[in-house]
Design a protein around this nucleic acid. Sequence first.
DNA 1: ATAGAACTATTCAAGCTGCAAATATAATGA
DNA 2: TCATTATATTTGCAGCTTGAATAGTTCTAT
Lengths: 147, 147
Amino acid sequence: MTSSFEGSLAEAEAQAIAERNLCGLVSALSRQIEGHVRERAAALDLTAPQATALRELTGPLTMRDLADRMGCEPSNATFVVDRLEEQGIVERRPHPTDRRAKQLVLTPEGVELRARLIEKLTEGSPMAGLTPQEQTTLQELLQRALH
Amino acid sequence: MTSSFEGSLAEAEAQAIAERNLCGLVSALSRQIEGHVRERAAALDLTAPQATALRELTGPLTMRDLADRMGCEPSNATFVVDRLEEQGIVERRPHPTDRRAKQLVLTPEGVELRARLIEKLTEGSPMAGLTPQEQTTLQELLQRALH
DNA sequence: ATAGAACTATTCAAGCTGCAAATATAATGA
DNA sequence: TCATTATATTTGCAGCTTGAATAGTTCTAT
């Protein structure tokens, strides 16, 4: 015999398992995406975080802007930009109106490297298995799940 | 005037942006999930990876099994289990049939801590904003996107 | 039986990440 | 104005992660 307490407990447990499956899938897919970036970036002698930063460097950005786009802490952006700057890919300039901030600008080498990176990242996407319709659905669901 | 080189570059850029939206959403959601785990685990003096490992330690596992479940390299599992063992949460025992392998077993403290962890992780899930129907759809899409 | 291939776990080096503290600058309000 | 508060960046620290190298063990095909 099953009490209503046990019934709802089993229900909650099943719900928890479903939840974990879903979170686990998101994490697994995220790892797969990062693996894809890592692989493509390695061909250009970049690490995955460096490639992510370079990808986001469309126009002049502050460190904070870059951190926001990368989804990481500003201190982390400092670390990654240090490496990119050592490689002559990006330059830290004083911000024209805010003396606290830096303005990140790609060097000519950086512009050229970024073009090659975008090309590499575009070919053979991790989402290739989904139709455009499915991609749209997935995008909507993910956006709703995000806060 | 626009050269064909610049034209295809802009095309690749547009394609990359669409891709990034989807991949970026997956990554952002994954970070949100990890943040949720980190927050709940901190209340039990555990880091997020330690909590993930403890969550997966249902029955006796080998290091390899745990690494697979955590979605990380075995060397990483070694690192995390070292910490859990130092805290008296898990024990490494010789595997009964394979002398290469270790058998991970929770201590009584580990069993108790794991129960509290599961409880904390279950309440207030990151996926709360989605209906069960939507969760099912999302799960199917994620599984299709994985490999 | 045994040599070679494959597997398990570990160590190490290098790099990534978040958090807290410190510094410098900007914005706000009495 | 001037004190307070908020923001931008950096530094130090502790912990995480991967990939290569290593040692011991098991498997497999002779």
